[in-house]
Computed example of a mutant assay.
Amino acid sequence: ATMPSDLLKPLAVFARQPQSQRYIKAIRNLGDAWRSLAEEPLPESDATSILVETNFDLIVKIKNAKEEQSSSSSPVIVEISTREPLVTPNEESSVSEPPRHYRIFADWGTDFIWRDFDDLRGEEGDCMLEAEEILCSPFYPPSVFEHYDAWVETYTENFNQRRNKTGDFHASTFANVAEEVAWNVAGYLLAWRIAMAPDVGSIEFSAGVSKYMIEKGEETSVTLAFLQDQAELLAKGEPVA
């Protein structure tokens, strides 16, 4: 099946928003939102692919996204990878420790990252986490924490300006839907980078009223569902967060 062009709109909005620029290393083949910091052309085999490379060691390739004719022989496939080789835990620790499961959702005054309820162990007591507890592990380059921290800060600053300072708690956190969608896309990409670590089993990522189960092997289905929802949010034209 061909990829409906409106599914690309959330990526185009992300590419254009000022808040997103810190996260983007290169975006290629995305129509008018195209910009490339790396001059190397995409190989012929990727002529119909869209590539998003972030500054936090995550590369998303959407294959067959730009097929003119929909054809069952070339379905849309989303591939997510890291540029740095993933650190593998040593044998002993990987055997004894089952993977961890997290949730990421915006809640003012927190770091937006929580343990899954069913994954609380022994002494942990509480689901709430500091981002450092997870992201300062050897499984992540420092850029992951740095950009995740900036992502949380963007929401928190908006919330403070638009709600806390005005006292209007019915106000939306973001001034317009494009800002919200760009922030959601950044968070979705960050959640995937966190989920790439060998000791992470899954991350339930929330955007607006929807939740997405991010786990290795589900790249295509969950990414298309997420982009579909963000495209619908853009079409409605009203921020919901």
Rank of each mutant, 00 (worst) to 15 (best):
T2N: 12
T2P: 13
M3A: 08
P4W: 02
D6M: 11
D6W: 13
P10F: 05
R16W: 03
P18F: 03
Q19A: 04
S20V: 06
S20E: 01
Q21C: 00
Y23G: 05
A26R: 14
A26G: 07
L30Y: 00
R35C: 10
R35G: 10
R35L: 09
R35T: 04
E40M: 06
P41T: 09
E44H: 10
D46E: 09
T48W: 07
S49W: 04
I50Y: 04
I50P: 06
E53H: 07
L58G: 07
L58T: 07
K61R: 15
I62C: 02
K63S: 12
S70M: 11
S70I: 10
S71E: 10
S72I: 08
S74W: 07
V78E: 12
E79L: 14
E79V: 14
T82G: 09
P89E: 13
P89I: 09
P89Q: 08
N90I: 05
E92K: 12
S93G: 09
S94G: 09
S94V: 03
V95Q: 13
P99H: 02
P99A: 07
P99Q: 13
R100C: 06
H101P: 00
I104M: 10
I104L: 05
I104T: 13
F105I: 03
A106E: 14
W108I: 14
W108M: 11
G109D: 11
T110K: 00
D111L: 03
F112E: 02
W114H: 11
R115V: 02
R115Y: 10
D116W: 12
D118K: 09
D119T: 06
D119C: 13
L120G: 04
E123T: 15
E124D: 12
G125V: 12
A131S: 14
L135F: 00
L135I: 00
Y140A: 02
S143W: 00
V144N: 01
E146V: 05
H147P: 04
D149W: 10
W151E: 01
W151V: 03
E153S: 13
T156L: 01
E157Y: 08
E157M: 09
F159I: 06
N160K: 07
Q161I: 05
Q161G: 02
R163T: 08
N164G: 08
F169C: 06
H170D: 13
A171L: 07
S172N: 10
N176L: 03
A178H: 11
A182L: 01
A182C: 01
N184M: 08
A191F: 07
A191Q: 08
A195S: 12
G201D: 01
I203T: 08
F205W: 15
S206A: 15
A207W: 02
A207C: 07
V209T: 15
S210R: 05
K211C: 11
E215K: 15
G217M: 10
E218Y: 03
T223K: 02
L224K: 02
A225L: 13
F226H: 03
F226D: 01
L227H: 04
Q228S: 14
Q230M: 14
Q230V: 09
Q230E: 03
A231E: 03
A231H: 06
A231K: 01
E232D: 12
E232K: 10
L233P: 00
L234D: 11
L234F: 00
L234Q: 09
A235S: 15
A241L: 15
